[in-house]
Computed example of a mutant assay.
Amino acid sequence: MRALVRRGTPQRPVLLTTGDLGLDPARRVVQRAASEIRLTPREFSLLEYLMRHCGEVVSKAEILRDVWDPNFDGDDNVIEVYIRYLRNKIDKPFGRDSIETIRGVGHRLLVDGGRAS
């Protein structure tokens, strides 16, 4: 019992941010420019994964393994579909281009939040 007390309460997951895009894993809330964005559970998980690897190129295989079920047996094009869903929700309404596709490699969430020029 004393060991549990010494550990204290578990740390609340940190708020993830890049530019004006914020994601709160504990409350499952996404905001951009002070506007709340509604995401499906899968979209939320994909965005959280990209934000945790912000600036890094992640492959479809990594996304399938870490966001989808490791035993997923469907077409990996599902990643492109969900990337498009995210772009339509977190980028287009705000004039941003925060998710970059690296042809033949994977996707990357830009560190600065992807301000469109």
Rank of each mutant, 00 (worst) to 15 (best):
R2D: 14
R2Y: 10
R2H: 11
A3D: 10
A3E: 10
V5S: 15
V5P: 09
R6M: 14
R6S: 15
R6P: 00
G8K: 06
G8H: 06
G8Q: 10
G8E: 11
G8S: 07
P10A: 05
P10D: 00
P10S: 04
P13N: 08
P13I: 02
T18H: 03
T18K: 03
G19N: 01
D20L: 13
G22C: 10
G22W: 00
L23C: 07
L23S: 00
L23Y: 02
L23P: 08
D24H: 00
P25S: 04
P25D: 03
P25E: 02
P25Q: 00
A26T: 03
R27E: 14
V29P: 09
V30G: 09
V30F: 08
R32S: 08
S35K: 15
E36S: 03
E36T: 08
I37S: 14
I37Y: 07
R38T: 12
R38Y: 09
R38H: 14
L39P: 12
L39Q: 02
T40I: 05
T40M: 06
P41S: 01
R42A: 00
R42N: 08
E43L: 06
E43F: 02
F44Y: 07
S45Y: 08
L47G: 08
L47H: 00
Y49S: 07
L50H: 04
M51T: 03
M51Y: 01
M51I: 01
R52T: 05
H53K: 10
H53V: 01
C54W: 05
C54E: 15
C54Y: 06
C54N: 15
G55R: 10
E56G: 06
E56N: 12
V57D: 01
V57W: 01
V58A: 13
V58T: 15
S59I: 07
A61F: 10
A61N: 13
A61I: 11
E62S: 15
I63N: 04
I63Q: 03
I63V: 13
L64P: 04
L64C: 04
R65W: 07
V67T: 10
V67Q: 10
D69N: 14
P70Q: 05
F72Q: 06
F72M: 09
D73F: 11
G74W: 13
D75M: 01
N77S: 14
V78W: 02
I79Y: 03
E80S: 15
E80D: 15
E80Q: 15
V81M: 11
Y82L: 12
R84W: 04
L86D: 14
L86T: 12
N88P: 07
K89L: 15
K89M: 14
I90C: 07
D91R: 01
K92Y: 15
P93I: 02
F94R: 01
F94P: 12
G95V: 06
G95F: 04
G95Q: 08
R96W: 03
S98M: 13
S98G: 13
T101P: 13
I102Y: 04
R103G: 11
R103N: 12
V105T: 10
L110E: 09
V111S: 12
V111Q: 15
V111P: 11
V111Y: 07
D112W: 07
D112R: 11
G113A: 05
G113E: 02
G113H: 01
S117K: 08
